[in-house]
Design a protein around this nucleic acid. Structure first.
Lengths: 210, 210
DNA sequence: CAGAAAATGCAACCGAGTAACAAAAGATTC
DNA sequence: GAATCTTTTGTTACTCGGTTGCATTTTCTG
């Protein structure tokens, strides 16, 4: 059912990948706003309409890689060990991704990844698009939490908090790396922040001078 | 220092207001995407470049009213009664805005406001722009919380949570009104949700089946 | 009233995204 | 393996958001 060995399908996947890779290379080289989609299409040797048949907007060319993390939080909650609390599962998963230096945690100093994040945080339209992905993530997570037994409103509130917190953590990690330090030098602080974040989520903001 | 009684300044303010009002009227009548900026400019009797000298993007024409709530959360924290906890001030303020039927809480069933929110939630580009305003709000709130004595990372995390939660609450209120009920019929539920939300923020998600 | 400074209009332009239709390439059937 | 059907692609031309350069008008200043 998954073995779409058709030549057509293979070609489509290759075209898609070529487009995204070509685009990202150009974007990193000269900046997102300084590269036109026409150039990307030309470099990838397809026409402009074809490009837009693969990617609905210019931003999606850049965010393709990030897009396959879609729904990760919801998945973590659904796939948690029986009896485990959703929040505990999310916490453990985030720590694991930190140890794996997953770019999504912000804790990855591969030069290309770092440059990519620079571009992301300095290009408003990319951030806007990213927020839309986040909104989907949030919806999915809220559903998963509701399935896990949380009351509906509570689930939505909790999902919003978790997603928001993840963004803050990722951005803080990137900030540390952007100031020149290595992942190994800051992984400790990253774990500590994650601990604090999940402690706050779990036990609340009261008693923190708040 | 604030008495810009100059004729020039007065005219500018009037032009700006005319533009925004004309635009919103057209948007509500036919939908945001079905109205071109050229039409708005023509209806307001200015040229297209002039329009863009007042509003950097089409979206800002629609969001002008919301924009002056910028930094409200931070202000509430800064202006809180001496000795009051920031979170308590935010909670009280939100309840007060609910009672005032402030559109920003989602709890306002004036037909135009309701239609405006329909448009907002059904137009991706407007939501995206709104998220950017929210990011500014978040930054400002984080600063205010840090000033109030919270540790830096904690302040950023808390700010993200508060802003995210406000959006969930507003959206839930709008959803209730959109299903036809009156504000008076749902104000109780709105207060209850706000209570729950701030309880979760203060005391944490643990022990909620999470 | 004269001249500086600011705001406007006009026209032309750029880039993102789309529509229409024709051409090509992969899949299917006999 | 040729004929045919379907999907994908390229070409051209268009709409719309947003910008630029420059001439013109309007307001402010002395």
């Amino acid at each position: 059912m998954n073995e779409e060995t058709g030549l057509r399908e293979r070609k489509k996947q290759r075209t898609r990948q070529t487009l995204s890779e070509t685009a990202i290379a150009l974007f990193l080289e000269r900046g997102f706003d300084q590269v036109s989609v026409a150039e990307v299409a030309a470099a990838a040797e397809v026409s402009k309409p074809t490009l837009f048949r693969y990617f609905p907007a210019k931003e999606d060319l850049a965010l393709d890689r990030i897009a396959d993390h879609q729904g990760e939080a919801a998945r973590v909650v659904r796939d948690r060990a029986p009896g485990a609390a959703p929040l505990a599962a999310l916490r453990a998963h985030f720590h694991a991704r930190l140890d794996a230096r997953d770019p999504i945690t912000g804790l990855c100093d591969a030069p290309e990844v770092l440059a990519f994040r620079d571009m992301l945080y300095s290009t408003p339209s990319l951030q806007a698009r990213l927020m839309r992905y986040a909104a989907d993530d949030e919806r999915a997570l809220a559903e998963a939490l509701a399935e896990a037994g949380a009351e509906e409103v509570t689930a939505r509130l909790a999902a919003a908090q978790v997603i928001a917190v993840h963004h803050v953590l990722a951005r803080d990690n990137w900030r540390r790396l952007a100031s020149g330090r290595s992942t190994d030098a800051v992984v400790g602080a990253a774990h500590a922040d994650a601990e604090r974040a999940y402690d706050l989520l779990g036990a609340g903001l009261a008693g923190q001078g708040l």
